[in-house]
Design a protein around this nucleic acid. Structure first.
Length: 910
RNA sequence: GCGAAAGUGGCGGAAUUGGCAGACGCGCCAGACUUAGGAUCUGGUCCCGUAAGGGGUGGGGGUUCGAGUCCCCCCUUUCGCACCA
């Protein structure tokens, strides 16, 4: 009678034993190689969901593998415990957010423990305790001292449902990132900002250090930072005598500028209205500008809103050609990007084109396609005076293109032209220094129907006519700088991080407002500024802290006079921007982090989490690290060496969520199948970086597999448990190598070592756990198939034990409880986590005989079996002798026979 | 529009460097054991064809002895950014 697989009993037993043995506890140890596995810390929402299980199952497989490989592994977990949901629940039930938060943490901790992840629980902490958040305040003060935290009155994004401000990163499609159907409104508020823009260049530059981050994440961050090079050009508003700076990336098109557009919020707009020639005109202008402004606000929520504008009646002078062009207010111009003013070049910008067409403004073409593309070997005409260094008048000559790279070409003149080229007759020139012989004379199209936005060659552009766009941009920017009406500049899309939240459940911003001294930071010795426990939640949009007089009323640290505290709290993304440093010494109370421990454990070797944090968390975290490096707290500018972003867990085509009602509860699944099955299924159903579609039938399959393994090992444990397993080297040495074993034994060990090889290689490389588990299934299938041979005694128990041990050991990465149970059944007393990961034996894994497909003109026609070491000649002979082939050949000679060693034969016949 | 990823059986997915397309699992079909089976075990399962054989990895071209894989063009889907000047 076979014992039944009882995951509940097995898992409880091993979880208890692991805890008793303190198996997951680690300490820094300079003598050992370290490995830091980090999974994104969960928000205590109340229940662990399948996305967490997937995340942590991946991390745990890696942590266990690295442990068995002999690394000193740090594998911590904690709680991102401040935040809105707890506060919203508190408003509803009139209980304290801390109550919810800690109850949720207790519950989720139990759920995580039920899943058996190998966390060092001693390092657990929640970010909502003063021992942690005082350091948020400390960081804030450090940044304030360095001018990296500042207060500014500004237009901010406000979510009416959250009743608080949102950072730019928290606005998704014009809506709140938590409430995807709630449009964000704009509000004017005094807010605290962190100067992430000061690190924009570093954030961009250091991406080159992030070699093992997914391309996708880097692309998204690069996009978000949005660095663009351009030129600032100073126009003059003539009647006002006022300078008006515009930003452009295409100064080469400026001779085609037929208007200047400014944003409705531009400071000049007020002045323009005030200087209107008549009251009537003033009123008209004012109402029109308001209308445009209103449409602009909507445009930021809706995409592709109609372009609207109003002529101001004023003109602006273009410093390049002295021309006066009309000045318009336009709804699509953003005050917060560039200078809030743009030059309108309708011929070469699609938005300008649409606007100018709608309002009847002139369109002037100044860029034409440079020419048709040239190819190596083509004949071209080089223009008189073309030169690179050194200067030389080439006159008009014919040349052949020899080489092409980015923008330069190697021309061959076929004769010596003065010894400047590499061999006296070749010359390297820029694009635009020559014309292809057949190229048409560049001319402007008669009536353009859309803007020509590509680079090209300039026409009708005064002294710059004839240059290519690239050349013109460079030269025109230089000229503007020389003459003082412009300069080359860099623009970023990223904005400073607004961290003020008009909410209770967060870190109080440690600032004091004094009537006499102004804004005064809380002295470091007075930290932490404690969140007062008793507050009334109004949900009205003012910070609840403002309603607590004993919190607000304080004395000024500078003058001792009466003062009030800042009542806003910090964005919770501050909490998660440095928590991973804290795990190395979570209780330290003299500094935010323990530098020595950080030096040992950092960088995080592997960070694992959802792609949804590609911009938010992962950019804030990088920013914090850079500030910490500048403060001298850490050595490296980047905290995470390798990032892995797992896919989402999907059910019925949509991400699992309470609102969609398609949630599968991991805890229920644990009760039904056991944690080992849930974890195994999470890793088996899809490769970890792809989305995973939940299937009830699928998890049944995973459960059946574990039962099958359990029964299989159980059937043989009795007969091998007292036997000493043959070691791999003993097996290799037996009778002078694998040859000393029976064919059945060799077959068994081959499969075992092939499986070991596959899983080892995969853990070191691709992380396709789904294929690892498939290999384990094949291994089990093969073992079951071989059972008659076992009964017949053709496999020595010590060999069988070796194979079973490899099976159980591999399983330990994915389903650790049942693996330990079976390991024990095989006669061991230690947990598998303490067993060294074995090296596979290439000789044992090698196939003895190969089945080689024989193709006939690329189509499979036959198969031959040959010994693994067969020579090409032998394989060719065997293939040609194969009856089907010989028959098809019918005495003819094949045109060609291709033999790929170990792989295939292809017989080519005409 | 820009950037990234992806498109393979009824389904999830395999095929690491160009070399047997569909591993493994789910589902389905048949059988065994059973009073019974939603348990377990055995066999089958890309399509057309009785067969020999032929077709087949979103579509179209190309390179190659040989293409899911490489190149060119196109289509579709997902994700991120987006009147960013």
């Amino acid at each position: 009678m076979e014992p039944n697989y009882d995951p509940q009993q097995i898992e409880a037993k091993w979880q208890q034993r692991w805890a008793e043995q303190k198996l997951f506890e680690t300490e820094a140890d300079a003598a050992r190689k370290k490995y830091y596995v980090l999974e994104m810390l969960p928000y205590p929402s109340g229940d662990i969901h399948m996305g967490h299980v997937r995340n942590y199952s991946i991390g745990d497989a890696l942590a266990r593998y690295m442990r068995m490989k002999g690394f000193n592994v740090l594998h911590p977990i904690g709680w991102d415990a401040f935040g809105l949901p707890a506060e919203n629940a508190a408003i509803k039930s009139q209980r304290h957010p801390a109550e919810f938060t800690f109850a949720h943490i207790d519950r989720m901790r139990a759920q995580l423990k039920r899943l058996g992840f190998s966390y060092d629980w001693r390092r657990e902490f929640a970010t909502c305790v003063p021992e942690y958040y005082r350091w948020n305040q400390w960081f804030f003060l450090q940044m304030y001292q360095r001018g990296l935290a500042y207060r500014k009155h500004s237009r901010v994004n406000w979510c009416p449902k959250c009743c608080t401000v949102l950072a730019n990163e928290q606005v998704v499609d014009g809506c709140c990132w938590r409430h995807e159907d709630t449009p964000v409104v704009e509000k004017e508020l005094e807010q605290w900002f962190l100067k992430i823009t000061a690190y924009a260049d570093q954030l961009l530059d250091h991406m080159k250090l992030l070699l093992r981050w997914p391309e996708r994440v880097l692309a998204m961050q690069q996009n978000w930072i949005g660095k663009s090079f351009g030129t600032e050009v100073e126009f003059t508003v003539e009647a006002l005598g006022r300078p008006l700076r515009v930003f452009t990336t295409r100064v080469d098109t400026i001779f085609g500028c037929t208007a200047v557009f400014i944003a409705p919020e531009h400071p000049l707009v007020e002045e323009i209205i005030a200087r209107s020639p008549s009251v009537e005109h003033l009123l008209h202008l004012r109402s029109e500008v308001e209308r445009v402004k209103a449409s602009a606000v909507r445009a930021r929520v809706e995409v592709n809103l109609e372009k609207q504008g109003i002529s101001t009646g004023f003109t602006a002078r273009n410093p390049y050609n002295g021309e006066s062009v009309p000045l318009w207010v336009a709804n699509f111009v953003l005050m917060e990007y560039g200078t809030g003013a743009v030059m309108a070049v309708p011929a070469h910008d699609q938005r300008d084109f649409e606007f100018c067409t709608a309002y009847g403004l002139p369109i002037r073409t100044v860029i034409v396609p440079a020419r048709k593309s040239v190819r190596i070997g083509e004949m071209v005409i080089v223009r008189r005076g073309t030169s690179r260094t050194p200067t030389c008048d080439l006159g008009e000559r014919r040349a052949i293109i020899r080489e092409v790279d980015d923008n330069s070409y190697l021309l061959d003149f076929g004769e010596d032209i003065g010894g400047f080229g590499p061999d006296g007759r070749t010359w390297r020139v820029n694009e635009g220094d020559f014309d292809p012989i057949e190229s048409d004379e560049p001319t402007a199209p008669d009536t353009p129907t859309s803007a020509y936005v590509e680079y090209g060659r300039l026409i009708d552009s005064g002294p710059y006519t004839g240059l290519t766009s690239q050349q013109a941009i460079e030269r025109m920017t230089r000229d503007a700088e020389a003459q003082g009406f412009g300069k080359g500049t860099v623009q970023y899309r990223i904005k400073d991080w607004g961290i003020s939240r008009q909410r209770y459940w967060g870190t109080p911003i440690p600032m004091i407002y004094c009537g006499a001294c102004g804004v005064v930071p809380v002295p470091e010795k007075d930290l932490p500024v404690i969140l007062p426990p008793h507050v009334t939640f109004t949900g009205t949009g003012e910070s609840p802290l403002a309603q607590v007089p004993e919190f607000v009323r304080t004395t000024c640290p500078q003058c001792g006079g009466p003062a009030r505290r800042e009542t806003d709290t910090m964005d919770t993304f501050v909490d998660s921007s440095w928590y991973f440093y804290r795990y190395t010494d979570p209780k330290i109370d003299t500094a935010p982090i323990n530098r020595e421990k950080v030096r040992y454990w950092f960088p995080v070797d592997q960070y694992i989490g959802g792609i949804e944090h590609a911009i938010l968390h992962l950019i804030y975290m990088r920013f914090f690290t850079k500030v910490m490096k500048d403060i001298g707290l850490v050595d490296s500018p980047e905290p995470v060496a390798r990032l892995f972003t797992q896919g989402m867990v999907i059910k019925d085509g949509a991400k699992m969520s309470k609102s969609k009602g398609n949630v599968v509860d991991p805890t229920e699944m644990c009760a039904k199948y056991g944690a080992d099955t849930v974890r195994l299924y999470m890793l088996f159903a899809a490769p970890p970086e792809k989305d995973l579609e939940w299937s009830d039938a699928g998890i049944e399959g995973a459960s059946r597999f574990l039962q099958r393994v359990y029964r299989l090992v159980g059937r043989h444990a009795g007969s091998v448990r007292t036997v000493t397993a043959a070691t791999t080297s003993e097996i290799s040495d037996a009778g002078g190598g694998p040859a000393g074993l029976s064919a059945e034994e060799r077959r068994l060990l081959r499969k075992a070592h092939q499986s070991l090889r596959h899983v080892t290689d995969d853990m070191e490389g691709r992380w396709h756990f789904n294929t690892d588990i498939a290999i384990l299934m094949e291994f089990v299938n093969e073992l079951v198939e071989m059972e008659p041979g076992l009964a017949a005694g053709s496999i020595h128990p010590s060999v069988l034990k070796n194979a079973l041990e490899i099976l159980v050991l591999l399983l330990a990465l994915f389903s650790p409880h049942v693996a330990d149970e079976l390991w024990e059944a095989l006669g061991h007393s230690e947990a598998l986590l303490e067993v060294a990961w074995p090296q596979y034996d290439a000789a044992l894994a090698a196939e003895e005989e190969l089945e080689i497909p024989v193709q006939w003109n690329g189509k499979l026609r036959a198969r031959i079996r040959v010994p693994a070491g067969a020579s090409e000649d032998e394989i060719r002979r065997r293939a040609l002798a194969e009856p089907k082939i010989a028959q098809a050949l019918d005495g003819r000679q094949p045109a060609k026979v291709i033999v790929v060693a170990q792989k295939l034969v292809n017989i080519v016949v005409k």
